[in-house]
Nucleic acid binder design. Structure first.
Lengths: 201, 201
DNA sequence: CTTGAGTGTCTCAATTTAGTGACATTTAAC
DNA sequence: GTTAAATGTCACTAAATTGAGACACTCAAG
């Protein structure tokens, strides 16, 4: 039995290491590919502080890495957005939390949004990812409509523009994190203020 | 003499063709590289509706193409921004025109901004491009300060954030052009409204 | 201090991308 | 329809990137 436990322990240890390195590679890859989709894998490896050889031990090839990154982005962005939606019944609170959630997701959200909005992406309702994206978007739309009826948001602005602004402010907040003096908390406050005032009547 | 005129004519014709194709390649490259900095030249060629062979007739190698793209961006973005600044003495008008100018520059401005703000870019005052960028930024800063004193813009927000928002709204307006129903004119109106309200006190 | 999983180093073959030469095709001007 | 410049097609080499094998090194657990 003790031997069995050892195996378990070792396996847990190994699993832990694997997940640790593997997820570091994924996070790194999302960052790098978000900034430069065709960046060489060496850059991903450098960014993750491992060698390219190690990267190839975890991922069969570039396609697999990209696919796993997309999965990771889909899962964590959706989760964050759905949490934000579920966080309240108040549309204004929901909207704010969706913005904050996007900023917290960082380059994951930037990449996620680009993927679903990009020219090369052909949207397909039968694709689960697209369906989930639509679900979030429908919620977003409903929140905006509610707030427009309450006269908290301008009725002149289209949903398309508001969504565009929402994502645009998230993306620029994320990239600003790197080179500005403002704290992350300050950025989030500014982002929310600018967004909600920007679409007010 | 008639022969001489012929040569002139032919040369003008050739020059015209060369500029036409060359500038089409440059515009195409700016678009493609803005979306994906390491994209293969085949994509640039496809986007410009020429073959890769023709592209290589105009540009010695990738580095030269990239350098020319940067030159083009520097020149036309600066020109557009300086025109906007010179367009009026009213800070509010100047600010609006800078936003519109950015949107009109399209992916040129997106790329231009990324270049000067990117992590890899080490800013150097002795570099003319950086100096020119600083000049525009100083003007922008002065305009914001003026409007803050007039209480038209929130004094709580930092210049850094306001600049970030300005560029962010331009960039998302540019990328939204492609897949939304709104007309370009509408987008510009929305962009300006969202921006100025977003930074109001 | 041995063991083994994870990682690094060095190496090499396969694939993709970059760049060029030779020649055919298009195009507008004459 | 001839001409000359611009572009396209095809073929090729060079360079960069990718992916994997073989073996050494590290480091924590026993």
């Amino acid at each position: 039995m003790s031997q069995f436990c050892d195996i378990i322990k070792i396996n847990y240890f190994c699993l832990d290491m694997i997940i640790k390195t593997k997820s570091r590679i994924i996070e790194s890859a999302i960052e790098v590919f978000n900034a430069n989709y065709s960046a060489p894998l060496q850059k991903v490896a450098d960014n993750a502080n491992i060698t390219r050889r190690t990267l190839h031990r975890y991922f069969k090839d570039r396609n697999e890495l990209v696919a796993v990154c997309e999965r990771e982005m889909e899962i964590s962005c959706k989760k964050a957005m759905i949490n934000a939606i579920d966080s309240s019944n108040e549309p204004l609170v929901q909207l704010k939390n969706m913005l904050i959630a996007g900023i917290n997701c960082g380059s994951k959200y930037s990449f996620f949004y680009k993927l679903h909005k990009g020219e090369s992406h052909n949207h397909n309702k039968n694709n689960k990812d697209c369906a989930d994206y639509d679900y979030i978007y429908q919620n977003f739309t409903q929140i905006i409509r509610d707030l427009q009826e309450q006269n908290i948001i301008s009725r002149q602005m289209t949903i398309g523009w508001i969504q565009n602004l929402h994502a645009g402010i998230i993306i620029s907040s994320v990239s600003s994190d790197l080179n500005n003096k403002e704290t992350k908390l300050q950025i989030k406050e500014f982002a929310w203020k600018s967004f909600i005032k920007g679409i007010s009547p």
